[in-house]
Write a protein that binds this DNA or RNA. Structure first.
Lengths: 136, 136
DNA sequence: AATTTAAATCGTAATGATTATTATTTTTTC
DNA sequence: GAAAAAATAATAATCATTACGATTTAAATT
């Protein structure tokens, strides 16, 4: 997803357009990887030295809520990336060195034929971890 | 895995048998669910009021290392359960209310036919989240 | 059974990511 | 440009986890 689309979606959802949010989207833009919240904070501080933690974390969650960002948990820390929703539902290979990702179109839910009658399925997670060709 | 098997494996690996480790295994024994580290700590303190955080966390990781426990990350916290390795490699449905699990024999890695040439795969995670029949 | 020694634990402090709070500032709307 | 609502800053607090020196314990050896 590009920054323009994201800003438009924000507006649709009734959120205000702020310098901070624009910057946050720019930081993510073009990055094909999951980034730790703390790293976003760090980069953010280069542009807004006195930014509040609150602003960064609140916006990360809000942007995830409106599907502008995707999030996952790696090594105990929340990581975020721009939603690549143009490909539809998919999963990721994630490099444990550099964080770069590769989309995996296959979704295991298609093939699970376990008996889950009576279970209310809300969500699922499928991720492959390892080293990408560059880091390998 | 039962407590006896676990204690035996500890011995094989050269770890000492301590009251704390026995208690920790007993806490897990018969529990068919992932338990947050902090909850283990809490229960542990009922038996060893002056236990050090260190002891609990160190042992949780050590027990995971020797495959007596399995771990996963839920809601930003590490969770542990006795390894159910009798079934071989498998995944879990995890109830987001009570933490109870149901084994899923199917492993998505069997069916991924994405081109991952050049990628060094180290690990993967597949979990289904939702409400179990009791919590639903 | 006492001695030795290496491992394990305790007690406590520190870290580090995240969350909370209140006052101030900024967008947006009229 | 003024008013109302939302967002941010500044700062403190929380909470899970990690770190570390001092003490204790398990178990191997005598």
């Amino acid at each position: 997803m590009n920054v323009e689309t994201a800003l438009q979606r924000l507006k649709e959802k009734g959120y205000k357009r702020t310098k901070q949010r624009e910057r946050m989207l720019k930081i993510f833009s073009g990055q094909d990887q999951y980034i730790a919240a703390k790293d976003i904070l760090k980069e953010f501080q280069e542009y807004f030295p006195s930014v509040s933690f609150d602003t960064v974390y609140r916006n990360l969650y809000m942007l995830t809520e409106v599907d502008i960002l995707e999030s996952t948990e790696l090594g105990g820390e929340k990581h975020f990336r721009l939603s690549c929703d143009t490909d539809g539902h998919h999963h990721h290979f994630i490099c444990t060195d550099c964080g770069k990702t590769k989309s995996i179109a296959f979704c295991p839910m298609e093939k699970v034929n376990e008996n889950l009658k009576g279970y209310d399925i809300e969500n699922h997670k499928f991720e492959i971890y390892g080293k990408c060709p560059q880091c390998h």
